[in-house]
Simulated scan of single mutants.
Amino acid sequence: MSHKREFKYAVRAAVLIVGASVLSGCMLASPHDATPLPNRTLDVPTTDKQSANQTGIVPDERVSWIKNPLITQIRFHAGKVGADYIEIRYYLAYINPSDKDVKWTAKPTPDGPKMRLYSEGKQILPAPRIESGIEANKAAPRDEEIKANASVVKARDKWATDGLAEFVIMNSQFLTGTHIYEVVYWHSQLDWIDVREVLDRTDSQGKGRMMYPITDNAPSNRLYFKVYKPTDDEARQGRRIEFLGEVDARTQVPALPYARPGDFAPKTGYWSATGKSIDRLGGYHEVFVREGDSMPNLPGDKGVDPFSFQWKYVGEHSQASVQ
């Protein structure tokens, strides 16, 4: 497919350019644009963030989530330590298990990259925010550019990169000490043209809701890895930043009682879905998973924000009857 040619460079550019983009006429400003970043991490855990705010496109009251049929699969290859950065190299694939062709886009949102970085439940920018004091509106990409970044995965087919994709993180963004980091790939079927057309159509009939498809699919839309960063005193003693390699969710993370879709279940038993976006769906969702198996996606056709979707271990016996 046509997207293979520039994907590696697009990912590198996407993660190094973190700022506000405004799609004129139908977009609201992202909450991140209006709030200065006090330190490396955001103040709010991912489970507490309302899912619509993650788009930077559509306000909460306008959004309903539906399932994206594509499964996004990222597989770790290696980590490269540069002079002032660490580069994560990985394989990326989109799997379409459905009976219909599905579009995917390399222009999923006007604000923020597809790849997002977390540690201990808090988001970390892969590069420092550039504060110029003057925030000029950035023009949305041209329609022809958006269309050039759209492809279709045929029914029962799979798309994969020819080679390795890259995710670059500046050393200044890592937390002091040894920490586990999580890279999440956030994938939507909608590009900016789709969003504009949907909002224009609903606006003509009053302020309606739009169905926003977002991935929360297993087997994997995240990578875990570990990095050591010396303190200032340790750095003066000659200690350097170290990339400690991939973390295997099967044996090392996450600690009970929580796991994410695509993670490996650390314990056999019943697991219930939890998180703010799960609560918004209503009802009780429970699955039985054996240790070492991949944690599943939610059943049905309702999608949720993958940043807040977690499975919580509830024990060897089902809790559904007491809900």
Rank of each mutant, 00 (worst) to 15 (best):
S188E: 08
T35E: 08
D143N: 10
Q54K: 07
R75G: 09
G245Q: 10
L199Q: 01
K147Q: 10
G112Y: 08
S64I: 05
D191L: 09
K107R: 11
V81K: 14
E242K: 10
I193Q: 04
K122Y: 13
H317A: 10
E6H: 11
R239Q: 15
S2N: 11
S272F: 00
T109A: 12
D233Q: 15
N221Q: 12
E87I: 03
R75C: 07
G262S: 04
Q50R: 06
G79C: 07
R236A: 14
W65P: 01
A165C: 15
D99H: 15
V22Q: 04
A139F: 09
V152I: 15
P45H: 05
P113V: 08
S188N: 09
A150W: 01
G262P: 01
H187K: 03
D263Y: 03
N68K: 04
R156A: 06
E286L: 05
I95F: 10
E291S: 12
S188L: 07
P213T: 04
D33L: 09
R239I: 04
G315W: 05
Y228S: 12
N171T: 13
R280W: 02
R12T: 04
P219C: 08
F309P: 00
V314N: 11
V81M: 15
L175V: 05
A13G: 10
K49I: 15
A273F: 02
T268Y: 13
R89D: 02
T72R: 07
V168I: 12
D48Q: 11
G56P: 01
I95Q: 07
K107A: 04
V102C: 14
G163L: 13
D301E: 14
Y91S: 11
D216E: 09
Y313K: 01
E291W: 07
A83M: 14
P299G: 06
D305F: 03
P254A: 02
N221C: 14
I193H: 04
